[in-house]
Design a protein around this nucleic acid. Structure first.
Lengths: 194, 194
DNA sequence: GTCTATAGGGAGATAGAC
DNA sequence: GTCTATCTCCCTATAGAC
């Protein structure tokens, strides 16, 4: 009975995985159904069977990413991680992207292309970006209260700076080398250490 | 004789202006020769007369942007601006983008699309990004020495954080509203004030 | 669920008239 | 310098057989 759910959705999941990777590497306007079909060894009509339109696929990629982030955050609570460990885990998400074929944050990619993507994808992107910022804001507020982080101004403002730095540095790393991303993260840590 | 140079290149300049605006708003893969032709009221063949290929056009847009930035930096020196005024002027460049139809930094857009654009455009983008960072690094080193800025670590690392924040925040502002960009810049200033 | 076949449109680019 | 006309290719998407 567990096999039923697993076997049934294989192609659909593979398409989502491929689309997610391509959005991170090439952007929404940088890949096509044909690219996905070629990668999976199927025909582009089969991709349309699972996702009626490219806009649907793009939106579902982001919605899945949001759910995954929520589960990730819940896991950190279950594991009773401290604020430092939580921030480190958050940085690690972006570090992994950088080390995995110079991918970028999907939210960052879609915000760059924001005026050239379908409305449904925009809405999903906005939701993801808000989730990320709210989580970061909570962590920063909690961490400063506990004396773990030091920064001026409001936690929400510092959260924008951190989110923007991570997204921007992943993109800068593409033209200037991955060490620029590492340098940015190291500098963020120094700043928060006060 | 001054008219000779002015009249001669009108269309070419208009194409560069349109392409620059479209790269900032839509990205390299978000506009076409047809879009430019429609905007200028000409035919797409006329655009090809001035720029043989889209890759040429993209690269020239960035090269012109680089030259403009260099002249901008030289002007600041001529005017003997202080480090605070220089940083403020730098922020103003991005502020203007944000207020002009939620445009983004051209370097940021092309770095997001980096794996989906022609090699010539990539090289120009890399050059622009290096120029921006070198200028910022010099300013930060000079400013800290003069006691105007406070930050930990190396000036080059702080420069990546600032450049990434500005690029990233312009993109975040598209989905979350322009006030997020303002908040990021305000936070950067607080950090540098120490 | 996946295929073949194809519609319908837009892309980048070129030839040659004016 | 700009036009008309056209080539070739790739895109998203659908119909209908298997």
């Amino acid at each position: 009975m567990s096999a039923a759910t697993t076997v049934q959705r294989d192609t659909k999941r593979e398409i989502l995985d491929a689309a997610e990777a391509m959005i991170q590497e090439l952007g929404y306007n940088g890949f096509s159904y044909q690219h996905i079909a070629d990668l999976l060894g199927i025909k582009n009509a089969a991709v349309h069977y699972h996702f009626r339109s490219k806009a649907d696929l793009g939106a579902e990629v982001i919605e899945r990413y949001r759910r995954r982030f929520q589960r990730w955050a819940e896991q950190l609570e279950v594991q009773r991680k401290g604020v430092h460990a939580k921030l480190e885990a958050f940085f690690q998400i972006y570090y992994d992207l950088s080390n995995n074929g110079q991918r970028a944050c999907p939210a960052g990619m879609l915000q760059a292309e924001f005026n050239a993507i379908p409305e449904e994808v925009r809405e999903a992107t906005r939701g993801l970006m808000i989730d990320l910022q709210e989580w970061l804001t909570g962590l920063l507020a909690q961490g400063r209260e506990a004396g773990a982080f030091r920064f001026p101004g409001e936690p929400a403002d510092q959260a924008v700076v951190i989110a923007a730095t991570l997204q921007g540095a992943l993109q800068i790393a593409r033209s200037c080398g991955p060490e620029r991303f590492d340098a940015a993260v190291a500098q963020l840590k120094r700043q928060l250490a006060g």
